[in-house]
């Protein structure tokens, strides 16, 4: 990911934590890092599409940025497929997989 030039959006105060995959949630949506999408944009997408709080969205965004990938949502296969296509419509690089396959 990259920083925009309009304002200073340094957000390094939160350590990244565990992935979101739970045992009862068989499918996960994974968002991958890329050099084009703005950090602000990735946070905005997580807030507007998934309805996550600003702090949760930022935590997941930093996970993508620093670890290269983050499991951002879990659920049934149908939900994971739908969420993946939604991420693609926003231009994020996302895939879906069975939980625990990584």
């Amino acid at each position: 990911m990259t920083l925009g030039t309009a304002t200073d959006t340094r957000v390094r105060d939160e350590a990244s934590t565990r992935s979101e995959a739970g045992l009862d949630q068989p499918w996960v949506v994974v968002v991958w890092n890329d050099p084009v999408n703005l950090m602000t944009y990735v946070s905005y997408v997580f807030q507007t599409y998934f309805g996550y709080s600003e702090s949760k969205a930022r935590k997941l965004m930093l996970e993508v940025h620093e670890q290269g990938r983050s499991a951002v949502a879990t659920g049934s296969r149908e939900k994971a497929e739908r969420d993946t296509v939604a991420m693609h419509s926003f231009g994020l690089w996302a895939t879906f997989e069975k939980a625990g396959s990584e």
């Binding site: 925009g4 030039t5 309009a6 304002t7 703005l38 905005y44």
Partner: peptide, 15 residues
């Protein structure tokens, strides 16, 4: 990039 960042700031502030 500049335009997108500026629009994002406005969208996030209105949210």
């Amino acid at each position: 990039t500049w335009l997108q960042e500026s629009l994002l700031q406005a969208l996030l502030s209105s949210t």
